[in-house]
Amino acid sequence: MKLAHLLFLLCLLLMVSVKALAQKTDGGQTKIDIKLNLPKLDAHPYHKPFVAVWLETKERSAIETIAIWYDDAEWLKDLRQWWRKLGRKQHASSQLDGISGATQKPGVHHIEWQGSLLEDHAYLNFEVVREEGGRSYHRELIQLKTTGSYTVKEDHEFGEIEIQVNHIANP
């Protein structure tokens, strides 16, 4: 009798966890809209900064690069966090060719990403480094399966960053 009870409970538990897993992999899409402000800086000479935006898991494993703006690959290593997590691999295998862009002027820049991820949470990373200037780095923990907005406070090399996350459930 007791054994049957246990088995029943075990079955229930399994069903619950299977259901949880199924929810994670239901194929819904996450859309991320970013407004990244590069501040006008009183610097002479002023060089437009290198910028990297990318996703990592909550455990800080690399997921993918969303944006990479640079000119000369010799200085890509100065985007230190991105370089170790994704850059050095993607550069070696020419994976940056499709996603990279030129460095950008000060102002608000829109960056969009849409994809399907297994995780409920992810770190959205921002790294900005400027020749003869400084470096700013921030990672924001975002929820991927819930619509929400986030604001990152300005730092030296970036102004305020607005993040809008929309989750589009599988129809």
């Binding site: 000369d72 290593k77 370089w83 850059g87």
Partner: peptide, 9 residues
């Protein structure tokens, strides 16, 4: 300790 790019360093 860390260098990047296509040129020899």
């Amino acid at each position: 300790t860390v260098v990047s790019g296509d040129k020899p360093m």
